[in-house]
């Protein structure tokens, strides 16, 4: 490492997501956990001989899922951050596997705003910024839906002003 000139690192992006994202993630986790747990519990209630071996995993899954739903989203909220400057979109995601994505404004091709049913409930939206690369898409999940709309509009305006075919 080039210790002579001091070390550099990526600074965290300026903005956090909307605090409601924590609730949204929790709801997602709980739903994700509920599906197999309900199925297992139902089967356990109906099939007497295998009851123990069906209810046990159901209970384990329920405990694990609830634990994750309580703990993880708060952690995610601290690591997921985003920032849009005049030159680039900058996003940090991930806990175990952190990922920083940078897409320059001049190379942005499309800006999509998506609001799933659960996101609508929490008044959140996901903004996806794609470039010409099949692997360079930048997603900002869990934005307040008005922030997202404003952001999408701003990005679209900037990219329209930039000439070239963005490859």
């Amino acid at each position: 490492m080039t210790t002579g000139e001091g070390t550099v690192r990526l600074r965290p992006p300026n903005n956090t997501l909307d605090p409601r994202a924590v609730g949204w993630w929790r709801a997602q986790w709980l739903l994700l956990t509920a599906a197999p747990v309900v199925v297992l519990a139902l089967l356990g209630a109906l099939i007497a001989p295998a009851r123990f071996w069906l209810l046990l995993p159901a209970a384990v899954l329920a405990v694990l899922g609830t634990g994750c739903a309580v703990l993880l989203p708060a952690w995610w909220f601290r690591t997921h951050r985003w920032e849009v400057t005049d030159e680039a979109v900058y996003v940090r995601t991930g806990v175990f596997r952190q990922e920083w994505r940078i897409a320059p404004m001049s190379r942005i091709q499309t800006v999509d705003t998506v609001r799933g049913p659960l996101e609508q409930l929490y008044r959140l939206a996901t903004v996806t910024v794609t470039t010409a690369s099949a692997k360079g898409a930048v997603r900002i999940e869990g934005l307040d839906h008005e922030t997202a709309a404003g952001l999408a509009e701003r990005l679209t305006r900037i990219t329209q002003d930039t000439p070239g075919d963005a490859t």
Binding site: M1, E99, W100, R101, I102, T131, K135, G136
Partner: peptide, 29 residues
């Protein structure tokens, strides 16, 4: 046309990271 920097927990402990240049061409990254 963009950068993706990745660092897993183990990479963080070893002080390394992976830098990906994204591009419109070839494999894309």
């Amino acid at each position: 046309i963009g950068w993706t920097v990745r660092q897993t927990y183990f990479q963080r402990r070893s002080g390394v990271l992976s830098v990906t240049a994204t591009t419109a061409a070839g494999a894309g990254a």
